[in-house]
Design a protein around this nucleic acid. Sequence first.
DNA 1: GGTGATACTTAGAAGACGGGGT
DNA 2: ACCCCGTCTTCTAAGTATCACC
Length: 577
Amino acid sequence: MDMIVLLGEKRRRKKELNGDSTLSICCWWEEERYPEGIKWKFLEHKGPVFAPPYEPLPENVKFYYDGKVMKLSTKAEEVATFFAKMLDHEYTTKEIFRKNFFKDWRKEMTSEEKSTITSLSKCDFTHMSQYFKAQSEARKQMSKEEKQKIKEENERLLKEYGYCVMDNHKERIANFKIEPPGLFRGRGNHPKMGMLKRRIMPEDIIINCSKDSKIPAPPPGHKWKEVRHDNKVTWLVSWTENIQGSIKYIMLNPSSRIKGEKDWQKYETARRLKKCVDKIRNQYREDWKSKEMKVRQRAVALYFIDKLALRAGNEKEEGETADTVGCCSLRVEHIKLHPELDGQEYVVEFDFLGKDSIRYYNKVPVEKRVFKNLQLFMENKQPEDDLFDRLNTSILNKHLQDLMEGLTAKVFRTYNASITLQQQLKELTNPDDNIPAKILSYNRANRAVAILCNHQRAPPKTFEKSMMNLQSKIDAKKEQLADARRELKSAKADAKVRRDEKSKKIEEQLMKLEVQATDREENKQIALGTSKLNYLDPRISVAWCKKWGIPIEKIYNKTQREKFAWAIDMAEEDYEF
DNA sequence: GGTGATACTTAGAAGACGGGGT
DNA sequence: ACCCCGTCTTCTAAGTATCACC
């Protein structure tokens, strides 16, 4: 595989540089890799950190039912506090949320409570809510020493539980704290919103570690559900969550060998797709003409996945989650066909909710054949029928596997994201620009990818204000520049040079602010982080930084540099995706 | 081919932090 | 010294994909 060749090449280069006859290994990416399936040989950790136990409210904090003070049992009170803490959120006004919450809350009540509390609308949590607000206010007002104490306690916890040993490395664990109990908040219109997420106990926990490691001890008086020694998986701890019945895991940080290697491999697969994407595109264009309906549907779906970077679209259990779709699960109601729209022919209008209930809205001119096929697929169907009724992700991925080893639908997103970044960087970088302007170009290239992948964010609540602030800074700077120029004009010859330098400096500052304003404005509803972290081959960015003399810190923050350490070490300025 | 279980990646929001301005 | 705002970090939900079993 390419990776192995690259590995050897890099080592050789390093060896030559060092004049070293021994092979010096310093990082995981210079190590030998395990055979398929084996994830580690040694794994030792301290187990998870549990959520702190519930602390009952002080006596003076009251809950009212139907206008009268009511003392709740500890269990019922705990669940009530979950609701009280969310009182300001619009969640708590939603019918489904209230219904689910009330149903689960009642399960925690004593029989007396159950018979008294029969209506959520008669419950008054405002005093409890005020108490929590005062608490968080008090936390902000804590003295330096108190804050320091908390910080030290967190550091101690991190030091003790935040790391594990996997083979020869001490690795950071991503999420060593067990999720605390609370009310489930789904995204979008989730049928289970408001349900009680129960407290996880040691008896729920499966520990995974190696036989010859020091096995973590359960909290006193408790037992683990199970201790196993499975080195075919990467997780350290797992438990089953009660809302969807799905399994949750404690795994390693992105900077770890096990995650980094996989990430690297992901980009190598995408690069292999680059080599055969033309062939695959020709193939699916041919398949638009197939006699078989199944093949045509597959070919049109693949075209969407490739052209529009849609997700695969697995089936979901109805009523268990928010109603969202991806490519294969698109329904007739999610597209509109326009033989002609705004002077363009064969336009498909997409409007559906994707992952996290983020809306995908796009009007796309397509080839005539695609358009005709879509008309065919929609014939005699109801709006709620599947658009691709002969297709699912399993069929699609099986086909992709035949086209290229390791090819799945998501590889197209990775490939198209990375190749777009590379192209856009080539197109947008102006060699004469200064560093801030070059970074604007980088962000614009990144933005092109985020738009392709439909990575949106809610415009920050303070967006307008922050733009205003920036604008007033710009105005002030302009004023300053005008002053400096007047001074320059009237300055005596011997002071001219000094004055000129001053103007230049102010000019540069002004430009930096203006670039910042442009960047922020363009970024109002776009989230760059997701593509940067998950879709863009980091070696493209590293190479770009090297080529133009941009410090890598301008592109990646500390966490990102840790995650992409392999790429920062590996990529040279001539790297090509 | 369908189905449920499992393991892993990808995702936006919320909360914590910290640096610059006053 | 404090506060405000942008950035970083954490949190955990929501996807993708594969596999065993029928």
